[in-house]
Amino acid sequence: MISFGNELKPNSIMKTTLLPLLFVLALFSQCRPPAADVPATPKITYDQASIELMKEITPQIHGTWKIQRLQVRNLHGNPSLNQLGILFDSTFRDLATLTLYQARVPRTTPRDFRQSEIDGTIEYKGKTYPIYFDLRANAEWIVAKKGEKGFMLFDFNFPSGSWHYTEPEERFLQDIGMIGEVFALDIRPDKTMTWRGLNRGIQQVVLVKQ
């Protein structure tokens, strides 16, 4: 067999091939730009989310609203409804008018921006009474965008310590369950607001902005 002096052995061929390849890979790894830092998603607390929600919906609540429909359920013989002659589930249409605006004097010091402080009036059968409510965010809405946006206690707002004669119109609003009730409130872009009663005879109140 003829042997050539410059014959390359298999190991020499492998080294000759791998060394340039490793050099090129090392060069590319050094030239590759560093990975861009991905900004961390800011964590929003429940309080911050509540404040943002109140900022969004409070201006929508302000204004004049007509109670277009009020649905009452007489469960278990509600005495207040019975004395009004409401013995069965009933619906009242165009019952009253609400005027709602931001409370001029904060009810907390310092002011609690997690809630929307609303003052206003309710007009029923020619009589006008002062009302108020403080709307707080619904935790289910904050976390999962489900359910109504907030909860509030709707009540008369007569001056503290004052006394007045309770008129029949005022008594009706109390007995039907409108006054002194806790409602779940939702508001939509079509200028419609709904209240769902939680404790007494009112099933739903539908209000339309005027």
Rank of each mutant, 00 (worst) to 15 (best):
C31Y: 13
W163P: 09
D175M: 11
G85L: 02
K146G: 07
L84E: 07
G150T: 00
R104S: 07
F156P: 00
M178A: 04
R111S: 10
P42Q: 01
A96P: 00
W163T: 04
G177D: 05
P168Y: 12
R200E: 06
L27A: 11
P59D: 02
L22R: 04
G147F: 13
S90Y: 12
P33W: 15
D37M: 14
E148L: 04
F156N: 08
D186A: 04
T41G: 13
T16S: 14
L53G: 05
Q102K: 12
F113Q: 11
F113P: 00
A139R: 13
F183D: 03
A103D: 05
L98I: 08
E56I: 12
L18I: 15
S116G: 04
K125T: 05
K66E: 07
G201E: 07
E167T: 09
I67M: 07
P110E: 03
K209Q: 10
G150A: 03
L185V: 03
Q68G: 09
C31N: 14
T41H: 15
G63A: 11
R136F: 09
H76N: 06
A49M: 12
R107E: 03
G77A: 09
Q102F: 07
T41K: 07
L81M: 12
K209Y: 11
S116Y: 01
H164Y: 08
E56F: 13
R136T: 13
V206Y: 02
D134K: 00
I179R: 08
L153E: 00
Q115C: 12
Q210T: 03
L198C: 06
I131F: 08
F23L: 12
D155A: 08
T16N: 15
I131S: 02
D37P: 05
I13Y: 15
T192V: 10
R93K: 08
S80E: 03
K146W: 12
D175V: 10
R73L: 09
N138I: 01
Q30K: 15
Q48H: 10
L25R: 14
T121N: 09
D112I: 03
E52W: 07
F28M: 14
W141K: 03
Y101C: 10
